[in-house]
């Protein structure tokens, strides 16, 4: 294991944070929209009695 990042620790950590945060955001937004659309469509189909 090598966690010794020397004088470039800030740059390396910033890069990983700058990757993981946007990735987490797009995954979360995608999941939230996916669930919302699924629920809304199920409700609409149930109202119209569509199997």
């Amino acid at each position: 294991m090598n966690l010794d990042m020397g004088k470039y620790a800030t740059e390396v950590l910033l890069s990983y944070a700058g990757t993981l945060i946007p990735l987490a955001l797009v995954i979360w937004i995608t999941w939230a929209q996916y669930r919302r659309a699924a629920r809304a469509l199920s409700a609409a189909e149930a109202r119209k009695d569509i199997p």
């Binding site: 294991m1 090598n2 966690l3 010794d4 990042m5 020397g6 004088k7 470039y8 620790a9 740059e11 390396v12 890069s15 990983y16």
Partner: peptide
């Protein structure tokens, strides 16, 4: 966590 630092780029290789 499991790669060595490079000679030229040091830890920025990660």
């Amino acid at each position: 966590a499991f790669t060595p630092n490079a000679d030229k780029f040091e830890s920025t290789v990660k």
